[in-house]
């Protein structure tokens, strides 16, 4: 018979089999003192795993991995870009009047748009319309913080994390919850819908990560991976989920419901 200490060690070493797991569970049920000893052993191991030295080392490793990956990706993009655009430049003479001013051919300065871009959080771009982003509550610590986004009289659209487009109908209100900063991709992008209607669609950027998107509503959470879908809160507090492409999962009271492309589901209290 294996000693309880050996069972705990096997659990901590991730080497326990089904029979040992059953014996460990029996031993844990026998006495609250066994539970306390088990919790202390697990806590010790997790503290070793997450000591400040360990975190620093793992962050350094991650930075190296990210750096090397980024350099490789950047080189690939540059090569592709040059291949595609060098061909186009050879075929078409591109003339920019502001770079090559010729008073005969170009009687006056070309008026250029003078946008006054609002400072937005990293990864967030306003594509169109009337959208206000409250980013005063920016993440800078160990937990995710939110960005409030609301549409005005007109509808508006945002791009988030390069791969997600959020189309807000007029007066829609959402919160964007970035993932935990230590998370590794693919992560989950969380949208809390407080009012109105939001349509989630995926950009066609092949280099972007295809993360899951969770839309949290007062009645349920809608989870979509690589799906285009709409979630709306009606005036009578119902939640309407409509899927254009792909499929989504509705999580509600511990149950799951799959909604496929072309289907619409209405949830009420």
């Amino acid at each position: 018979m294996t000693q309880p200490e050996a069972l705990v060690d096997a659990w901590l070493d991730n080497e326990i089999d089904a029979a040992e797991l059953a014996r460990l569970e029996t031993w844990l049920r026998e006495d609250p003192a066994h539970l306390r000893a088990f919790v202390q052993a697990v806590s010790l191991q997790e503290s070793l795993r997450t000591s400040p030295d360990a975190l620093r080392r793992s962050r350094r490793r991650r930075i190296w991995r990210i750096s090397l990956g980024s350099v490789a990706a950047l080189l690939a993009v540059i090569v592709l870009f040059r291949l595609v655009f060098s061909t186009q430049y050879n075929q078409v003479a591109v003339v920019d009047p502001t770079e090559n001013p010729d008073p005969k051919r170009n009687p006056g300065p070309v008026p250029r748009p003078n946008p006054t871009p609002k400072k937005l959080p990293d990864g967030l771009t306003i594509i169109s319309g009337d959208v206000d982003v409250d980013s005063s509550d920016m993440p800078d610590a160990t937990v995710a913080s939110t960005m409030g986004v609301s549409a005005g009289e007109k509808s508006g659209a945002l791009r988030w994390k390069k791969s997600i487009e959020l189309h807000l109908e007029s007066h829609a209100k959402i919160e964007l919850n970035p993932q935990h900063p230590f998370a590794t991709p693919p992560d989950v992008s969380c949208v809390a819908l407080n009012a109105g209607k939001v349509r989630i669609s995926r950009t066609r950027n092949p280099f972007a990560f295809k993360d899951s998107v969770e839309v949290e509503t007062p009645l349920a959470t809608v989870v979509g991976s690589n799906a285009d879908f709409t979630v709306a809160i009606t005036d009578d507090k119902k939640v309407v989920v409509s899927v254009t492409s792909g499929s989504v999962k509705i999580l509600r009271q511990g149950k799951e419901q799959i909604v496929k492309a072309g289907e619409t589901v209405t949830l009420s209290e």
């Binding site: 659990w11 901590l12 991730n14 326990i16 088990f38 919790v39 697990v42 795993r49 160990t142 937990v143 995710a144 913080s145 939110t146 919850n177 993932q179 935990h180 230590f182 998370a183 989950v188 969380c190 809390a192 949290e216």
Partner: peptide, 22 residues
Amino acid sequence: AGCRDAAVVQDLVQEVALDAWR
């Protein structure tokens, strides 16, 4: 203590953090 897979535990810690924040 409840789940022996360290990678799953790491994911779940983040999930709980997000749940709690929301």
